[in-house]
Write a protein that binds this DNA or RNA. Sequence first.
DNA 1: TTAATACATGAACAATTATTCATATATTAA
DNA 2: TTAATATATGAATAATTGTTCATGTATTAA
Lengths: 97, 97
Amino acid sequence: MEMLSEEKSIDLAELFKIFGDSTRVKIINVLLHKELCVNDISELINVSQSAVSHQLRILKQSKLVKYRKDGQNTYYSLADNHIEKIFMMGVEHIDEI
Amino acid sequence: MEMLSEEKSIDLAELFKIFGDSTRVKIINVLLHKELCVNDISELINVSQSAVSHQLRILKQSKLVKYRKDGQNTYYSLADNHIEKIFMMGVEHIDEI
DNA sequence: TTAATACATGAACAATTATTCATATATTAA
DNA sequence: TTAATATATGAATAATTGTTCATGTATTAA
C-alpha cells in the first residue's frame, strides 16, 4: 500500500464527510431497505421536508443516492451497494465499542 | 435491519466525521503501515507539527489511534484493524468512481 | 543546570455547513 | 383554470471546525 496522493486524500475525506452528518446517516439508513420518496423519508426520520431535501441534494451530488421521478413524487434509493458496505462497517464498529 | 436510534445515528455520524478530514485521512494512511511518532507523521504528510498534534488528539479521543510514549517521542498507531477496514472500504469506493 | 528536542495545547480567526423560513416549480385533482 | 400536493432551493443565521501562532511541559544531552 503506497502513500495516498493529496487529491485522493481529499476525495476520501469528502466521501466520509458525507456520512458524517446524522441527518444523512438517517436517510441512508432508511434507504437501506427500499426506495422512498421525500415525504416518507421526512416522516420516517422526523426531519423537516426542507432539511431532507437539502441533504438529499448533497447525497445526490456525491452520487451516493439515485432517484427517479414518478408523478409528483421523487423516489430516492442508494446508488450502489458499496454505500451499504461502508455504512455497515461503521455500524459494526460502533456496536463493538 | 431495524431503524437506527437517534443516539446511534449521531454516534455513527461522529465516527464518519473523524474520517472526513484530509489531514486525518493522511495520518490514518501513514499509520496503516506502522506506528510513527508525531514528527515523522508531520514530515511524511507535509503538515505542521501543531496541526498534526491537534488532529492526533481528535483521533485519540475517538479511540481511532492509540499511543505509547518512549522518551521524548510519542508513537501513534491505529487502535484496531476495524479502522483499516473502514478506511479501505472508502478507498475502494473512490477507486471505482 | 542549561540548552535542545519532541510534543501538547489555548486563543483567535477564517471557512464550512446544517437548519429554518419563505417561496418557487411541477404535477395532479377538482 | 384553480387548488392542493410534492419537492426544490435561495438567503440568512448559528454552530462547528481546522489551521496558525505562541507558548507550555517533559525528556534527554551537554
